[in-house]
Design a binder for these strands. Sequence first.
DNA 1: TGTATGTATACTGTATACAATTTACATACT
DNA 2: AGTATGTAAATTGTATACAGTATACATACA
Lengths: 233, 233
Amino acid sequence: MKNKHMERHQTLREKILETIREAILKGNLKPGEKVAEPELAERFGISRTPIREAFRQLESEGYLTVIPRKGAVVAALSERDVQEFYAIKSILEGYAASLAARNLTEKELERLETVNRKLRSLAEEGDVRSFYRVHNEFHEIFLKAADNSKLYGLIHQLGMKFNRLRMASLSVNGRMAISVDEHEKLLDAFRRKDPETAENLVKKTASIGSKVLLESMMNNHHGDTVNLNQDKH
Amino acid sequence: MKNKHMERHQTLREKILETIREAILKGNLKPGEKVAEPELAERFGISRTPIREAFRQLESEGYLTVIPRKGAVVAALSERDVQEFYAIKSILEGYAASLAARNLTEKELERLETVNRKLRSLAEEGDVRSFYRVHNEFHEIFLKAADNSKLYGLIHQLGMKFNRLRMASLSVNGRMAISVDEHEKLLDAFRRKDPETAENLVKKTASIGSKVLLESMMNNHHGDTVNLNQDKH
DNA sequence: TGTATGTATACTGTATACAATTTACATACT
DNA sequence: AGTATGTAAATTGTATACAGTATACATACA
């Protein structure tokens, strides 16, 4: 067998897929922008075939809008899209919380408490980036505890498209501290094995987050669609 | 090779996509079965290219499991998969119901009542196929009234994979009549503009349906995975 | 006899060639 | 001038060719 460079398991298609997806998420490819196959093929020095296949996948994932015989454009998100997606995400996360409330072990609860203590100190320091990372860790724990892999996958799929926006949402002043308080209430519900309360708390948190987000979007709006790129301007 | 009648604005990729998806849904392609590109290309008299592209899309949609350099197999659904999917679908439909309760107009409410009256008579006649169709119509109405296109799309995506199973679920004796009663309770909640009750009713209905379904699956189980094909008359 | 290995075969991954269609632009016409 | 039309360029859709890798089966070896 070949134990040498087994890292080479990724196909060109998979690599280009991730590259394009990353470019869209990072804002290097902006919503509404046209994505031409020959250009990408030239840029990456490969043929059109893997690119075309990646396009089909990206289309299914909602990153690209493909018009037959015309080409592909980066999917533009209207405020309405954001609202809808956020509502769905909150409902799914709420459900995950209710499942987690039933399943969480003592060990996991302690873990959540540890993570939230860390969040409190990060909020005080005002370290948004670290807060964001650890915040995700908190959610990861109870998402996994919900023990529904399809749910987990769906939430992640939705989350991926809004990660950058969520970061912006947390940057709003005081938002981090509030988040920690909300987590504390949630932890309380978890400890009491109270699925309903846990669900409602998560839903409420998400709905507030959505509101904050939409407001920040309204401020620097570009027509009726939104650019996910938050690094510039 | 030119096409005879160019009356189709659809690309070959889209056609083959639907064909394969349909074949999986109908059970002509069974879970676990290997799907080879050259064979399909030969069968449909086209090249491998559109087939490969369709594969990527089907992979994203969860119909195929592709192993690099080995090939694609029809995704097999474990009972756990069914349980998980069903749970998510019920949660999303429940949410849709709660939104619908807020939005439904008098006209739509009357429409729902008309449809449910029709369902009652179909249940008495024992016409499962028609019942299934009209049953979907009932759900369509309040799903659309929920006025969240992403939610609508997601529910449909999930539903597609389980349509045939749901038909089996309705075939269980007495299930149709119960469904009509449940609709009536739901309509009542809609009339009272009671989102919470509407949501809980839909969730409960789905959870019962899931249970019925899983039981019928247990009976004619094929190892640990499930064949979606139910049309052996 | 059972395991290992080599080779033939088949299939996937990628590149390239070609066909069909859209888009852009220049030209002609009112 | 403004619109219509025809042609060229660009781009997508499809087919085919080729290379690399996995699988199957036969053969050799212990």
